[in-house]
């Protein structure tokens, strides 16, 4: 990618002063987000991901470093300029944060009201936006009457009202059940593809990253543990934090088996076939599954499985040939 980044973050640090203690939430973070991509930031709670995304629209003010949006420094912006920026970089939240005393339509109209758009024009835009998120029939309902997924849809419509270039998603699906999460993620992907809106999302769920992100950064203790395309990071996880998040190297208690193992990666490219049964039946190798974290999304299998390496070199080779034939990426690992 040789184009200019839309958002360029350089050596961003945030230190919280809590009395005598200093808590480093972000430690020298540098990353670029390009126009049109869905950029994921994943990490355990306390990794600093929320602070990071909140620095981008300056809900939090970083201690040092710089964030450029189209070449303009967000950190030093005056109030008026910051307000204009925030209309181009909108945000959705884990708790939706809707105005509870306003109807759905009035919520979506809010960003239009504050810039003084005429009522009739605003109402028409609201109708369009509710169409995009599929809530035309709920225009006059109050948020309290909606489900969590519907509330997040209202929040998304509201975030789109100011015609933004970037959408920041702060754990937007974390308060939702798995089914609703899926539908919100498809909506975000749709918004990204159809409206060309760049999305930066933070999450603690690997599935969210796998499903819609193009590139990902793993945050750990306020630092970037690793960064790359989702495929890259997912299949060739380098960092300890990454392995923890993907569940690839389970925390093995003492009494659990250790020694040579093979990690199989299901990245959605392999068709749903009974691989393990195939190994057992066709190769006659008894497979011992040590751990697995798999998920079916849209008829494709995603996830990782850790199996015990076969004892004999011969079996091992046969297994490798079989996996290559099935186009299943794998890696030999040693679990301790």
């Amino acid at each position: 990618m040789t184009q200019q980044p839309l958002i360029a973050i350089t050596e961003l640090s945030k230190v919280y002063n809590t009395g005598d203690d200093e808590v480093v939430a972000l430690d020298c973070i540098s990353l670029n987000v390009y126009k049109g991509e869905i950029y994921g930031v994943i990490g355990m709670s306390g990794a600093g991901k929320s602070t990071l995304i909140r620095c981008i629209n300056r809900l939090d003010k970083p201690t040092s470093g710089c964030i450029l949006y189209r070449g303009r420094d967000i950190i030093t912006m005056e109030k008026k300029e910051l307000q204009r920026l925030r209309r181009k970089v909108s945000m959705i939240f884990q708790q939706f944060n809707l105005l509870m005393q306003r109807t759905v339509a009035e919520n979506v109209r809010y960003p239009l009201e504050i810039v003084g758009i005429k009522r009739a024009e605003a109402n028409q835009r609201v109708e369009e936006l509710l169409g995009i998120v599929g809530l035309e029939d709920k225009a006059n309902a109050y948020p309290a009457q909606l489900s969590g997924g519907q509330r997040q849809r209202v929040a998304i419509a509201r975030a789109l009202a100011s015609d933004p270039e970037v959408l920041l998603s702060d754990e937007a699906t974390s308060a939702l059940d798995p089914m609703t999460t899926q539908s919100i993620l498809s909506l975000l992907k749709d918004i990204n593809r159809r409206l060309g809106i760049t999305i930066i999302l933070i999450t603690h769920e690997m599935a969210v990253i796998r499903q819609i992100c193009d590139r990902v950064t793993i945050l750990d203790g306020g630092e970037i543990a690793e960064e790359g395309t989702v495929d890259e990071v997912f299949m060739h996880t380098k960092s300890e934090a990454g392995r923890r998040l993907f569940g690839a190297a389970p925390q093995t208690p003492d009494d659990e088996p250790s020694g040579p193992a093979i990690r199989l990666v299901f990245d959605g490219s392999s068709v749903d076939r009974p691989i393990i049964a195939g190994i057992v039946k066709e190769l006659g190798i008894m497979i011992n599954i040590l751990s697995a974290d798999m998920k079916q999304i849209g008829g494709k299998t995603y996830g990782q499985m850790l199996i015990r390496s076969p004892q004999s070199e011969e079996s091992k080779r046969a297994l490798q040939v079989y996996l290559d034939g099935e186009k299943i990426p794998y890696k030999e690992v040693n679990i301790k």
Binding site: L59, L85, R87, F93, L99, M100, Y110, I114, V115
Partner: peptide, 13 residues
């Protein structure tokens, strides 16, 4: 709710 106020801030109010 502070979150609602924050959301309003994030919209450039």
């Amino acid at each position: 709710d502070r979150g609602v106020v924050e959301a309003a801030e994030s919209m450039g109010s």
